[in-house]
Design a binder for these strands. Structure first.
Length: 359
DNA sequence: AACCCGGGGAA
DNA sequence: TTCCCAGGGTT
């Protein structure tokens, strides 16, 4: 009897072990005739860029409840989209998401193109996402390569070339493995395998449907793949944040960051620039207005993609006669501050302004 | 080709 | 605490 092909082995495993995800049509439901919604596949794939399934779930639910179709999202206010995205990170994704929805609504009659090359032209859709939508939503033959696929395939074929140099070889291997039947389920199966069995550390080789054909199965070599080019270390930058409180209402002074760049378009507490040579002692000189600024006992630490940040936080409690006139920014009351487009580092700054160090 | 973009979970 | 993970855009 002929041995099963690699794709057959994996699809059999997927039929039994596919993760249940809010945007996924399970193999069973597929058999009952249910088809994936391209809008939901696209939305989930953009959210999943550089982000884990666990972090995405609640955001996905919130987005699809607020905007059930791509046309709804296209018609939304960008500010509302940024607020809904706050906390997910990589905020250019949210701006491109909105742009992409508008393009699909305006130029494609509200329907996503099925072709990989056409998808690739849309804002925020790169090689990975174009392939993922084409194959998962439309069952096109496409080689989907994300971090999971890179890990699984470098191990399966013992590819020791470091990333990113190994990318073309991995893409070719994935294209060769992908079957003509159920290419979308196959892509999702490889990614599920990477997420649950072929994990970065301590892979569960004993449970792997590909253990019999894997070059490194159950070997200590598995954990060392994929090899990666050395990453350069992150510098540390310093700055100060100023939390002004209206004691009558509890409102806090906020302002908008510039539309592009780091945390582009998001909301922030007024503060200094963030620089490697900034000394916190000089911070009060850079306050947005003169007041009785009191330094908080706890420093905020936060790590961005390419640097560490340490923020010294100051708070001033203002009354009617000390509250300044504003030249930009707004007062945000306690009842609405949860809905502001505050990135995580700014939530930490606000927490530091009001909390005491725990002992 | 090099650089710019957050945040969360596991060890 | 630290370590590790993970695509697209811009220049």
């Amino acid at each position: 009897m002929a041995s099963a092909s690699p794709s057959r082995l994996l699809l059999d495993w997927y039929d039994r072990h596919a993760r249940r995800l809010p945007w996924r049509v399970s193999p069973e439901d597929r058999l009952l005739g249910e088809v994936p919604d391209p809008y939901r596949i696209w939305l989930s794939e953009v959210m999943l860029q550089q982000t884990t399934v666990a972090a995405v779930k609640d955001y996905f639910t919130k987005f699809t409840r607020s905007w059930p179709t791509v046309t709804d999202l296209a018609a939304a206010a960008e500010e509302d989209v940024m607020k809904a995205w706050a906390g997910l990170g990589y905020y250019s994704r949210a701006r491109n998401l909105k742009k992409c929805a508008e393009t699909v609504a305006r130029d494609h009659d509200g329907r996503f193109p099925e072709d990989e090359d056409a998808l690739l032209k849309l804002p925020g859709i790169g090689p990975y996402t174009a392939a993922a939508i084409a194959t998962i939503a439309f069952d096109r033959h496409a080689a989907v390569v994300d971090g999971n696929v890179e890990r699984v395939l470098t191990r399966l074929f013992q590819i020791e070339t470091p990333l990113p140099d190994a990318k073309p070889e991995i893409k070719a291997k994935m294209a060769g493995l992908t079957p003509d039947q159920r290419p979308g389920d196959f892509a999702q199966a490889v990614m599920d395998l990477g997420a649950t069995i072929c994990t970065p550390r301590r892979p569960a080789c004993a449970l792997c449907p590909w253990r019999s054909i894997c070059k490194v199965q159950s070997s200590s070599l598995a954990e060392t793949l994929p090899r990666k080019a050395p990453k350069k270390e992150k510098p540390t930058r310093f700055g100060a944040a100023f939390v002004a409180v209206d004691t009558a209402t509890g409102a806090v002074l906020l302002r908008r960051r510039p539309p592009r760049g780091l945390l582009g378009g998001m909301t922030e507490v007024p503060g200094t620039e963030w620089a490697e040579d900034f000394s916190p002692e000089a911070a009060p000189d850079f306050a947005p207005f003169p007041a009785d600024w009191r330094q908080r006992p706890v420093e905020v630490k936060h790590t961005f993609t390419h640097f560490h940040l340490r923020l010294t936080v100051y708070r001033a409690d203002l009354t009617a006669d000390t509250t300044p006139l504003l030249d930009g920014g707004w007062w945000s009351a306690p009842e609405v501050i949860e809905t502001e487009a505050l990135p995580t580092v700014m939530k930490k700054a606000l927490a530091a302004a009001f909390e005491s160090p725990r002992k």
